[in-house]
Design a protein around this nucleic acid. Structure first.
Lengths: 269, 269
DNA sequence: TAGTGGTCTAGACCACCGC
DNA sequence: CGGTGGTCTAGACCACTAG
């Protein structure tokens, strides 16, 4: 019983991605990585029963608490399910994305093997509307940067983003080569940290400007995502209205009795 | 320092809802409930710093691990955020819903103070399509129950649900008074347990049938939620295609680097 | 009934934040 | 620098599942 896929990696390991693994990573993250890798590799199919806590604890020379922490991360990600008394089982379905892939169109595009691109339609510094002040939590009358950009997936226009950036960040955005780079990644290079995001998703008909920019007919259904992103201390950084061509994109959410991260709201009026 | 909102409830307490609280509940759930209640009551505004683990441990006479478990539940729910070295802070925004409110239209409607209703358009037992067999994970040629129902919020039609139920469950559904009851709640009374759900959300144009049932014009944008729900052992119970009137409903998702439960997918084609 | 996960404790060391 | 959260241990008892 040595060459199992769940045996801890020894040397020269370079964890691919996921739980922030790396060289100086924590034990429970590595356990979670190993289990996830084993699932992705097909060693554990959907519905398969995973090893018990006790077995993994022995295999890694770790305490039970550490193994439980690893499993908890996988449950939170919707990868496995857990019930008292029974072995944990693998949940099928699409692989989930990292937080960063959700906030950055470019990162998401590359993660699914598509080539992201962007074309700036409008960039301006202007007084924020009342609505924008509320969402960005800045005083009335503040000036914010507005960016309107068309995003492409392998050459096809699939999304319009209309984003308002709060002041310290807006100035950084204004100085970028917006047609090429990922703003999110560029801002992170500059020390801006995106920590929490709140997404609101609904369906709207394409306006005439939407239709022109996306090269579709007006009134076709668009999937709208309005997003607020905050830094680690809770300061709002951006407020964005993104509209996807209806047949281009869908959102998926996995939830269970223990992990509830999605909410359904009635729209105003 | 006694009558604080975070002091553990003594006797005769009847926790309202949320973390599965009740009389014979666990300590960490009660701590989480108390904190959440304090946030909802306004004692801790968005951005406020919460008490430290050590302080709460002392106040509840609990160990640090238990308090951490309570905080972890709140982080998973997107209610608070957490970073090493700094006090936890309250995140603003809409209150999230329980898993049950997400799966059951009726429960959701009542939670937001609206009166749910339903009108059966069609109910039939027929052979499942190839697509349905795949989603319900039943053999090709299986028979499944199909239900088409229009759902109302305080008298206004806002959603069409087209649901396929896997066999053991379908028979139960067929025997219900579908115009009145919540199917989900009724099934739970009969011992069926909904444990995990996977939601896929996109935008589509209303078909002529959609338009007729929802009393709107054809081609208006609808928010479509396709949902698969499984029982605790991973057996698929239902596969549903729900379509909401565009300006009636939106979904919101809160995510952060530690809790990633949402995924964005390109649709086929 | 044996195995397994859920809850809880008491203590330890470290990394990070803010003063 | 002290306070704080992040990680980890070793052990205990209980509730539930499955054979």
């Amino acid at each position: 019983m040595n060459n199992m896929c769940l045996v801890p990696l020894t040397v020269g390991d370079r964890p691919v991605a996921g739980y922030g693994a790396g060289m100086g990573t924590t034990l429970y993250r590595r356990v979670a990585e190993d289990i996830k890798a084993a699932i992705v590799s097909g060693a554990y199919q959907a519905g398969a029963r995973l090893p018990s806590e006790a077995e993994l604890a022995a295999r890694y020379g770790a305490s039970r608490g550490t193994i439980r922490q690893a499993f908890a991360a996988l449950v939170a990600d919707g990868v496995i399910s857990s019930r008292q008394g029974a072995r944990r089982i693998v949940l099928g379905g699409p692989r989930l994305q990292t937080f960063n892939e959700l906030v950055s169109f470019s990162r998401w595009a590359r993660a699914i093997g598509e080539e992201p691109a962007g074309r700036v339609e409008r960039l301006e510094l202007r007084a924020a509307s009342e609505d924008e002040c509320a969402h960005l939590e800045v005083p009335l009358g503040s000036r914010v940067y507005h960016l309107t950009r068309v995003r492409y997936l392998s050459g096809r226009p699939v999304m319009i983003e209309r984003t308002a950036y709060r002041e310290p960040v807006g100035a950084m955005v204004a100085g970028m080569d917006l047609d090429v780079v990922s703003i999110t990644e560029r801002l992170e290079d500059l020390g801006v940290i995106f920590a929490d995001a709140e997404h609101q998703i609904d369906a709207v008909a394409a306006s005439s400007e939407d239709a022109r920019l996306l090269e579709i007919r007006p009134r076709l259904p668009l999937l709208r995502e309005r997003r607020r992103t905050a830094d680690p201390s809770g300061v709002m950084l951006e407020w964005s209205d993104d509209r996807y061509v209806g047949d281009a994109v869908a959102f998926t959410v996995r939830n269970s009795a223990s992990s509830k991260a999605l909410s359904r709201l009635p729209s105003q009026r």
